[in-house]
Write a protein that binds this DNA or RNA. Sequence first.
DNA 1: TTTAAGGTACGAGTCAAATCGTACCTATGG
DNA 2: CCATAGGTACGATTTGACTCGTACCTTAAA
Lengths: 107, 107
Amino acid sequence: MPDDEGHPSVDEMQLGNVLSALSDPLRRRVIRELSLAPVGCERTCASFELPVSKATTTHHFKVMRESGLIRQVNRGNSRAAQLRIDDIENRFPGLLDMIRSEQGMTK
Amino acid sequence: MPDDEGHPSVDEMQLGNVLSALSDPLRRRVIRELSLAPVGCERTCASFELPVSKATTTHHFKVMRESGLIRQVNRGNSRAAQLRIDDIENRFPGLLDMIRSEQGMTK
DNA sequence: TTTAAGGTACGAGTCAAATCGTACCTATGG
DNA sequence: CCATAGGTACGATTTGACTCGTACCTTAAA
């Protein structure tokens, strides 16, 4: 059972949810940026400057959080998002590499 | 440019299309069965007996074909579907293993 | 030649996902 | 204290995906 913030444990991660989460270009862009940053990097939702409204941004981060791709922790004022690198790599080896090396996302 | 039957070349395969294709449980089931069968295995769409209409089955196979996951070749009467194992493994290493080992698909 | 099986094409319905605006909460920094 | 930045929650809209029925095509087999 996911914790009260919606994070599934490693074992609770479902391939279907992960693939659905990653089928959206904006979410893939977020995961890509996180996976390209130094390990342990933390970023706020807003820092990605997605070309959508605040409400939609929240929605996307919720999908990523509930699929297990990211962890969001309260940092007083804001919520820091971090990639669950080890969990993803354990359950779905190679997946992050695919996202990282996606073509046409150079921007 | 995809051939006249809608097959993209290896280089034309797009991560986004592949992930979208795999985000549907029925299509994942097809890919899973194909990846579990002997290499080079050919099967008709109908042989999967998806719990949907013929028209819908055609739709799902079109999505998989246009994303590059399968190849469909005319066999006179019917069209044989085969998994593009090497192409997938080259472009997206590890992806087939994920599908193959998905939990809760034992059925 | 007739029947049936495997598929496709089209239009239409339905439901989930993405999007937004607004209102609201919380903490930090003047 | 007050303004502001980062986020969430809610309801509403829109868009796209999945679905279907029907009509139609092609080939193999009876």
